[in-house]
């Protein structure tokens, strides 16, 4: 059985280590916060917050307290707030250890496309371009194929790029792949998924 969204998020949480400052993207990456367990992780939100807490209890939502995906959140005892210049300063300055982001396409060279599809309405590219250029490690969590069954892990991305050669690891519903200078390397298969299943579902070269 391929992993579901929560299993993918749980697997991504294993990438995070005690003491890390981490930025989580919108979608499945947001779920990663539910699986960090006892690890001391400080979450950064690029709209100006370090130390992001869980969703609020009903009735305790604060319109002035949201994450980059505009969801209501809470603060912790360690929380700090700052403006976008400081926020992107810490991202571009390499202070954030890792980012877990969603993806539309990833190439075998680690190129990432996750910000727009030509012809569709773009709300904004958000912080992804700065994140992939600045953080220590970039993990992309996404389905292995699109809704037509076509591989999202490609030789070359077809969509406009968010960053070139920036992805370190891809976690999909089928397993975990690392981007190496020779090509993609299968690190792990989801339960019941074989290497052959992954190779068959992948357009990119697997080494």
């Amino acid at each position: 059985m391929p992993w579901d969204r929560n299993q993918m998020a749980a697997r991504a949480a294993e990438e995070l280590e005690d003491g890390m400052y981490v930025n989580l993207g919108i979608g499945i990456p947001t779920l990663v916060a539910n699986y960090v367990g006892d690890k001391d992780i400080t979450l950064q939100s690029e709209n100006g917050m370090l130390g992001m807490g869980p969703f609020p209890f009903e009735g305790e939502e604060d319109p002035d307290l949201i994450n980059a995906g505009k969801q209501t959140i809470t603060e912790l005892s360690r929380t700090s707030y700052f403006d976008s210049a400081t926020s992107f300063g810490m991202i571009r300055g390499g202070k954030v250890a890792a980012a877990v982001l969603g993806g539309m396409e990833v190439s075998e060279k680690g190129d990432l496309a996750n910000w727009m599809i030509p012809g569709k309405l773009v709300k904004g590219m958000g912080g992804a371009m700065d994140l992939v250029a600045g953080v220590g490690r970039v993990v992309v969590v996404m389905d292995h194929t699109n809704k037509h069954g076509d591989s999202k892990v490609l030789k070359e991305c077809t969509l406009p790029l968010t960053g070139k050669g920036v992805v370190d690891r891809i976690i999909t519903n089928l397993g975990v792949l690392d981007v190496t200078h020779k090509g993609l390397h299968i690190v792990e298969c989801a339960d019941g998924v074989t290497r052959e299943d992954i190779i068959n579902a992948t357009e990119a070269k697997i080494v």
């Binding site: 869980p54 969703f55 609020p56 209890f57 009903e58 305790e60 939502e61 319109p63 002035d64 949201i66 995906g69 505009k70 969801q71 209501t72 959140i73």
Partner: peptide, 15 residues
């Protein structure tokens, strides 16, 4: 009138 675009909450019993 302060509006919330995406209201996300958790249930009490999860706490």
């Amino acid at each position: 009138e302060k509006r919330i675009e995406q209201r996300t909450v958790r249930k009490r019993e999860e706490a």
